[in-house]
Simulated scan of single mutants.
Amino acid sequence: MVDFEQIKGFVFDLDGVIANTSAYHAKAWHQLADELGVEWTDDLANQLKGVGRMDSLNLILKSGGKENDYTEDEKKKFAAEKNDNYLKLLETLDSSEILPGMGEFIKDISERHYLISLASSSKNSPRVLEKLNLAKYFNERVDPATLKHGKPDPEIYRRGAEILNLKPEECIGLEDAIAGVKSINGAGETSLGIGDSKLLHEADIIFKDTSQVTLENIKNAMLIPSR
């Protein structure tokens, strides 16, 4: 892991890191799983965290033994239905859904002139940031439509550094999902995992929850790596 002084930018996941939108995604996927006759479990919900729309749908179908039951056109229809449900749920979203401490942290690093990008698999992330009143702090956002691979492939986090004109080793990536942490590590960035230390054990730094995410805590953690 690099020295803290080398860090010039932060690359953020969105769902479950900045705001509670992961719960909105889970509810929309749960609705679709019920419609398809696939049992919804905590394990399935965890598998979908940080994963793109079509990959998530395929995981649900595989979980129910239905991966060969539908054409690609039918799958696209299901994915669009899920997104429609998600957008309806988003109508109630506002800044009160920002996770504890994250609004203050993002404002702090912006004022200290760190560069900030978003590496979310969600194509709705610009809308979410606007509704959270955080869009003004983000210098750049990775467009998931331009990516060839989803998490855990490192492409999205590598791109998150590139659009800031930074080297991967100059960036810290923030994630709450196993796939995301693997993506950050593969990109060559310092990984900051938020959540269960057993699930996120591959992260360089692990904080139990977002309230612990401060520059001072990150600096201290980088002196004593988690792995």
Rank of each mutant, 00 (worst) to 15 (best):
K62F: 08
L59A: 11
A19E: 01
M1K: 13
G173W: 02
H25E: 09
D73G: 06
V213Y: 13
V51C: 10
A19P: 01
S122C: 12
G188E: 00
L118Y: 04
V142H: 02
K66I: 09
K76M: 09
F10T: 12
E35N: 07
A221V: 09
D176N: 12
A79M: 05
H25W: 10
W40K: 09
S191M: 02
N58G: 09
K62V: 06
M54Q: 11
T214L: 02
G50C: 06
K77S: 15
V128W: 04
L200F: 09
D55P: 03
R158P: 00
N20C: 04
N165Q: 11
G65R: 03
I98S: 00
K66P: 09
D43Q: 13
V51A: 13
F78R: 12
E91H: 14
H149P: 13
K27E: 13
D209L: 09
K219N: 14
D15S: 14
D204L: 10
V142L: 00
L14P: 05
E169Y: 11
K88S: 11
A79G: 02
L192A: 04
H113K: 13
F78W: 10
L90W: 00
D153M: 02
E35V: 01
A203I: 02
F138D: 11
A26C: 04
H201S: 11
D3A: 15
L93N: 04
G160P: 08
S120E: 00
I156R: 00
L166P: 03
S96G: 10
S121G: 10
G150I: 05
V142E: 00
P126E: 01
L61Q: 04
